[in-house]
Amino acid sequence: MSKAGKTREPLFSAKNMKLLSNPLSKENPITIQVLGICSALAVTVQVKPALVLAIAVVAVIAIANVLTSLLRKMIAPRIRIIVQLVIIAMLVIMVDQILKAFVYDVSKQLSVFVGLIITNCIVMGRLEAFGMGNPPWKSFLDGIGNGVGYGVILVIVAFFRELFGSGTLMGYQIIPESVYDFGYENNGLMILPPMALIVVGVIIWVQRHRDKELIDKS
């Protein structure tokens, strides 16, 4: 391994790609690490706000991870939490201003949940667990991977809730009018907040059923 350390590791080596792909399945932030559920579920009534929030989180977590990683040798351990919070808060304010400028209606819909990215445990969690101890490029990949792993669950939940709850996707009608004429009705329950939890519960069920290693032994 010492020899490999001298020659520079290629940017997209197998090890680095694992950082990117692991959070999508085996170490998914929501279904396995149980991080970042707080701000996630209330915005999944429709696909569009879920997608916007997911992109915002990917951006924040990747940039914050890189910044923390660059500063990691300068941050005194005692004050690291507050330094991390300031880095995250700064990025989230920027995201919030950008959303307000370009997609005002979505930003209104997301209301406090953009701000809540700050206390989203997934961002803090990755900074603590990865950014503080790894070089910037790896931190960047880890940030992207975790952000996308989080976003994927968000979008899947939103997809089912919007499709069955209002018969639309991204605001366009998917279920044709003729189906409604036969007496089909939208499932109003899907729009209500508690259904988000149940959908996530079912996703966890399916994932653990396919991969028996993940089953909770306790």
């Binding site: 988000a196 149940i198 966890i204 069920w205 059923h209 993940l214 089953i215």
Partner: peptide, 13 residues
């Protein structure tokens, strides 16, 4: 597969 986290989500729902 539902044990632990999964069932907690569903109960919370």
């Amino acid at each position: 597969p539902l044990r632990g986290l999964g069932i907690t989500f569903i109960i919370t729902g």
